[in-house]
Computed example of a mutant assay.
Amino acid sequence: MQSKELGRYIRSIELDRDKVPSFSQYPFNLPVLRDLDTLSLHPKVTFLVGENGSGKSTVLEAIAVACGFNAEGGTKNFNFSSRATHSDLANYVKVVKGVRKPRTGFFFRAESFYNLASNIDDLDTEIAFGPRIIDSYGGLSLHKQSHGESFFAVFLNRFSGEGIYILDEPESALSPSRQMSMLTRMHELVKEGSQFIIATHSPIIMAYPDAVLYEITDKIDQVSYEETEHYQIMRTFLNKPQKMLKLLLDETY
């Protein structure tokens, strides 16, 4: 896998276990970190999937911060902070880079997207002349669009080729049809030399074929798409919704 384009921009991440103060304190007590040493990344798309609280967003945040991105999201030029809630895991993570350097990049974090949109508006009020920051996001304030529209405006306008994109639950405001549109946009950017690292719950998004999937339970394992719990649960529900509803609601339908 790593021979493809020599790992593109990030080949792997390594946890410096010798420097970890204690595996009994957060975030090092998370099961995902218990046996983590090196995590190889796909040169095109890497997915981290798992249940809420499994630690996938914590790991993704550490990768982003170790790469130089703001903990609350945006490009490397953003430095806003509404509240310092991120862990110090990034201080113990080494990013093993490929031979190429990305031209651009973005850390997209759904839970702090509102803060990112506000920071863009605030910065643009200080610009006396020249292009506004929002112009590279489609020209319309992200606060003046629906949640899903603003998410997709970033993917469509701010993302471009030869970039490293780290996305945390990008599907959270997207309808199923928009999630499929996101797959199309991802594929366009991959063909233009971009690399994605994505934490997601969406069986639609994680279906992207040229990728590696890591599922986090009490450890982290590389799995196939059909082996993921997300896919299996969704398939079961859609194939037999009445049976599932009866089991879930204890009613007869």
Rank of each mutant, 00 (worst) to 15 (best):
L41Q: 10
H42C: 13
H42I: 01
H42Y: 05
K44Q: 13
L48V: 13
V49L: 15
G50S: 14
G50Q: 13
G50W: 08
G50D: 06
N52H: 09
S54A: 14
G55I: 11
K56G: 00
T58S: 11
T58M: 07
A62S: 10
A62R: 03
A66H: 08
C67E: 13
F69M: 02
F69Y: 15
E72G: 07
G73P: 05
T75V: 06
T75Y: 05
T75N: 09
K76H: 09
F78M: 06
F78G: 01
F78L: 06
F80K: 00
S81T: 02
S87W: 04
S87Q: 10
S87N: 10
L89M: 10
L89Y: 08
L89R: 06
A90I: 03
N91E: 15
N91H: 11
V93T: 03
V93E: 02
K94E: 14
V95D: 07
V95A: 12
G98E: 03
R100Y: 15
R100W: 15
K101N: 14
P102K: 02
R103E: 12
G105H: 08
F107Q: 06
F108R: 00
R109E: 15
A110T: 01
E111Q: 09
E111W: 07
F113R: 02
Y114C: 07
A117M: 04
S118F: 14
D121Y: 10
D122N: 08
D122F: 13
D122L: 14
L123W: 09
I127W: 12
F129G: 15
F129I: 14
G130Y: 14
G130C: 09
P131W: 08
R132D: 11
R132W: 08
S136H: 11
Y137L: 03
G139E: 13
L140I: 14
L140C: 07
L140Y: 05
L142N: 14
H143N: 15
K144S: 12
K144D: 00
K144Q: 12
F151L: 01
F152C: 00
L156F: 03
N157R: 03
R158C: 03
G161D: 06
E162W: 02
G163V: 02
I164M: 04
Y165H: 03
I166D: 01
L167A: 03
L167V: 03
D168R: 02
E171V: 06
S172K: 04
S172T: 05
A173H: 11
A173D: 04
R178K: 03
R178A: 04
R178P: 00
Q179I: 02
S181R: 09
L183P: 00
